[in-house]
Simulated assay, not measured.
Amino acid sequence: MKLLLCFALLCWTADMTRSVTITTTEESFEKAKGETVHFPCKFTVSPEDQEPLHIEWIKSPPDNQRVDEEIIVYFGGNIYDKYSKNLKGRVYFTSSDPRLGDASINITDIQLSDMGTYQCKVKKLPGIANKKIQLSVLVKPSGTKCYLDGSSEIGSDFKLRCESEGSLPLYYEWQKFPNTEKFPPVSLSDLNPAIISVRNATPEYSGTYSCTVKNRVGFDKCILTVTVIPPSNTAGTIAGAIVGTLCGLLLLGLLIFCCCKKRKEEKYEKEVHHDIREDVPPPKSRTSTARSYIGSNHSSLGSMSPSNIEGYSKAQYNQVPSEDFDRTPQSPSFPPAKVAASNLSRMGAIPVMIPAQSKDGSIV
């Protein structure tokens, strides 16, 4: 009897627990970054559920070490949505009155940090129900660029590369315009359809190429124009580069030479400017004056008669400044050269008789 009573009590409790039922079946979503995600959570209640309705959304992050957090709550006719700092202002109930059986929410501008497991709990005691939904946030392909790797000359090898950023896996699709032109084979050696290899290029490979990158949440594309040209004159290019380099070096050397020369001139001008001194006139030579004076007297003696030689010689010799005889000659003295009388007469010299003078100064 007791056993039957316990079994009936458990069945009644189970029925009461299952009185609130969530009818939503979705369990996971994949959305692109920046989009809006809708988490459905529709429910029904039974007449036995008489307590106020309580709806609660909880986020469980992928990291198990982080605790769960409430993001939005409905209770007693009021909405509380300021629990989460990351989702503040981006989460709201879809229905204006969740009591009508719709506890769904929307999250706008979702970010990579919004990934995780979201749980919808509906309580209307004694009934309780919950539903978990998984959210995966992906990044659309973006920043896609195409470029040519190598030389596009005839007979050369090059590759067409396509690069993009986004959540893996990424799918690449190449297309050439117009479609009737020859299309290069896709490289299978790298197992990467983002690369097209071209060997022994010909003008047929010239054209416009389009690369489209896709993943589960979006796509992006880029355009590349390829022109296969004849081989360039490599020798002429090298010669031109050498000549240009030599001209540049010559010009640089000339510039350095001019700068050095200008500096030397400026330095010389400064030195000359500081070394200028006022010239001092040379002193008058007294020796030459005395000699010219004596020479003039000798010439005068040659033209005088013997009668007046005595008085003239005394007066003239007394007029010679004593300082001229006392002055020590600056140049070394040499013995007078002896010239024969016949030579002097031949040269036109006039013989002059110089009277002798005694100790007391009288002429003898």
Rank of each mutant, 00 (worst) to 15 (best):
G89W: 02
D97R: 02
G116D: 09
L112N: 04
K31C: 11
D63R: 10
P52M: 03
K42R: 14
Q111L: 12
V45M: 11
Q119M: 08
D97A: 06
D102S: 12
E48Y: 07
S104H: 03
E70K: 11
P98A: 10
E35S: 12
I71P: 03
Q111G: 12
V73K: 05
P40D: 09
I105D: 11
F39S: 08
D63F: 00
T36E: 14
S46I: 01
G116W: 10
Q65Y: 05
K82A: 09
E69T: 15
I58T: 15
V37K: 00
F43G: 00
Y118A: 08
S95G: 07
T44K: 06
P98C: 10
E70P: 01
P40F: 05
W57R: 09
T94S: 07
S60Y: 11
N78I: 01
I72W: 10
S113L: 02
Q111R: 07
E26T: 04
I55T: 06
T108S: 09
Y83H: 11
G116T: 10
F39N: 07
D109A: 14
F93C: 09
E69W: 07
L100R: 07
E69C: 03
Q65H: 05
D63A: 14
S28V: 00
I71S: 04
P98K: 02
K33C: 07
S95E: 14
V73P: 06
K42L: 10
N106Q: 13
P61K: 13
N64A: 13
E27V: 08
T108K: 03
E51F: 14
S60D: 05
E51P: 06
